[in-house]
Design a protein around this nucleic acid. Structure first.
Length: 536
RNA sequence: GGUCCGAUAGCUCAGUCGGUAGAGCAAAUGGCUUUUAACCAUUGGGUCCCAGGUUCGAGUCCUGGUCGGAUCACCA
């Protein structure tokens, strides 16, 4: 086996060579170019990250004062010196701040911005007025050597500074550096500060670089959420869903990802092998049957928010692994679940966006009230005649109705034949007590009254097995232990699965699932020589 | 898998009819040193995705391939 060399992984060019030289000089100047820590100060009662200082700390306060002063001035004019001087006295009394971050602008002159990934803060270094801290416990380098060090810092390096806050002539709150710390080197050059990374492949493969680019970007804020903001909304959405469920008495559980049978949904699984047991296992396609075993066991409200794996096509709304929220509530039926789902999604929209409407592509999606239609009613609205067979009904729905369901809509009364885990309606035994939620033509959720009659559940599995015999390789697989579990008595219950990636797409106005997954599935990267060898 | 489009400097992109490989940003050197995306001057930087073909000559035309994007089909 031959491993690639360091130079094959990081191909040297004029930029990396300059940075390597700077790194060597820093190693000499500070003793250790990769120190273990940097303690940030806590002026505002919390660690002085740049974001905290700008949101809650003295930087926020001073910026407010300057903003008020500026509002009284002609655009482009500098704030009066007396205002600035007074503010600077107050800031200096606060004492020393210690902040760390990535150098967000090329070094040019005395000013540089640092970023903590979200916010930027300007720092000012004046020759003769700061020293360079050593990372090996020795005494600081003097101000001449510190100035030498300042000049060989590169765009993207990670540094810490100790100094006092002040306001510049143009009114920007900055840190006057008194002590400079070198924390880590950026050997590779930073992306273009105006354009960032445009190549979708690099954005996805090297998400770290995409995130750096979005934190360095200077202008052009009309392009919607940055990559950073998109994943912050994703995190907020997920935590709001968890909070909502827990406030309503649900507990989070974890059920197997590696399962002996891929069942609980209609999908093709990934197969793997356990060596010690010498058995094949499948990455789960749904946690559903495990969660309902917990209803049998007496957990009345359970949820699981985690990945499912389906060995199928990749598209703007499909990734081989995707995040699904599934939850089950004992003694509730399909109608109760629709009510609950509606309230929960409204809450997550409110948390993510502050309101109940979302602009998505050319549409404004209004989450304030979800429509409810039976599948047949939805087809009738298109003016088409109603197909007779279940398969025809579903095909007609998927082709003519689904793409046009832009506003949040619950579709109910699915054919029982395609709903093997769902209770049949007492009024119409051919119809399942099931719904799917559609938004912007995408299925976002799927829920039903859970079938809890073990004998009927067995018969449904038999029907699925027959469909499989006929060539439907996505028909559901019989789970004997699940039938056995139902035989002990499962309370009447409703359950639902919500596609989190798709929900986040809607909340962030992203049109590809890959834009809301940090590391979406991609073909492995191959170097040219490798590809050539394999082709021979 | 089908169709269409794309790949040129570290990044963002030009490149006309087939005739010496270009710009901005970034980098290096020097100057400036309270600036607000781009300060001034100079310099360096290229497997034009890969392989083959046509041609006196290919970034450009042709064939095959790799990777990516859009879209259609299947799937949540």
């Amino acid at each position: 086996m031959t491993l690639p060399s360091f130079d094959e992984i990081l191909v040297p060019n004029d930029q990396t060579q300059a940075r390597e030289e700077h790194l060597a000089r820093f190693a000499d100047l500070v003793g250790n170019a990769y120190p273990s820590k940097f303690d940030r100060s806590a002026l505002s009662g919390r660690e002085d990250t740049i974001s905290n200082l700008k949101a809650h700390g003295p930087v926020a306060a001073a910026s407010d004062v300057m903003a008020q002063v500026r509002a009284t001035l002609e655009p482009g004019t500098r704030p009066p010196a007396e205002v600035k001087d007074k503010l600077n006295e107050t800031l200096k009394e606060l004492g020393t701040v210690r902040i760390a971050g990535r150098i967000a602008t090329p070094i040019r002159g005395n000013f540089v911005h640092l970023t903590d990934g979200r916010e930027k803060l300007q720092i000012y270094a004046k020759k003769g007025q700061f020293t360079l801290a050593r990372n090996d416990g020795e005494a600081d380098r003097d101000s001449d050597q510190a100035w030498e060090a300042w000049q060989i810092l590169d765009h993207g390096d990670l540094i810490g500074v100790e100094g006092y806050l002040f306001v510049t002539n143009t009114g920007e709150v900055s840190v006057h550096v008194e002590r400079l710390y070198f924390l880590a080197k950026a050997l590779s050059p930073m992306p273009d500060k105006m354009h960032g990374i445009e190549d979708a492949e690099i954005k996805q493969r090297q998400r770290y670089l995409d995130l750096i680019a979005s934190s360095l970007k200077v202008a052009g804020d009309d392009e919607g959420l940055s990559t950073r903001e998109t994943f912050e909304v994703r995190a907020k959405t997920i935590s709001s869903l968890r909070r909502f469920l827990e406030d309503n008495g649900y507990i989070e559980v974890e059920t197997p990802m590696l399962t002996p049978k891929a069942t609980g949904a209609a999908a093709k699984p990934f197969k793997t092998h356990h060596n010690a047991l010498d058995i094949d296992l499948y990455a789960r396609i749904a946690p559903e049957l495990y969660l309902k075993r917990l209803l049998v066991g007496g957990f009345e409200k359970v949820y699981e928010l985690n990945r499912n794996f389906r060995n199928e096509g990749i598209s703007y709304k499909h990734n081989p692994e995707f995040t699904m929220l599934e939850f089950y509530c004992a003694y509730m039926d399909v109608n109760g679940m629709m009510d609950f789902c509606e309230r929960m999604i409204q809450e997550s929209v409110r948390r993510a966006t502050g309101g109940l409407t979302v602009n998505y592509e050319r549409h404004t999606i209004d989450f304030s009230a979800f429509r409810r239609l039976t599948m047949k009613e939805a087809i009738a609205e298109t003016g088409r005649s109603e197909p007779m067979s279940d398969d025809g009904l579903v095909a007609c729905f998927e082709e003519f109705v689904e793409p046009n369901l832009i506003q949040p809509t619950f579709i109910t009364d699915f054919p029982k034949s395609i709903s093997p885990l769902s209770k049949a309606s007492p009024e119409n035994p051919q119809v399942a007590e099931r719904f799917e939620l559609y938004i912007n033509g995408m299925e976002v959720a799927n829920g039903f009254s859970e079938l809890n009659d073990p004998r009927e559940q067995y018969e449904r599995f038999v029907d699925q097995a027959e469909a499989r015999e006929r060539g439907d390789d996505e028909a559901m697989v019989l789970d004997e232990d699940y039938v056995r579990a139902l035989s002990y008595g499962m309370p009447p219950a409703a359950g639902i699965g919500i596609g989190i990636d798709r929900l986040v797409m809607l909340l962030t106005n992203k049109h590809s699932i890959r834009d809301v997954i940090l590391f979406p599935h991609m073909r492995p990267e191959r170097r040219v020589e490798q590809a050539e060898q394999e082709n021979e």
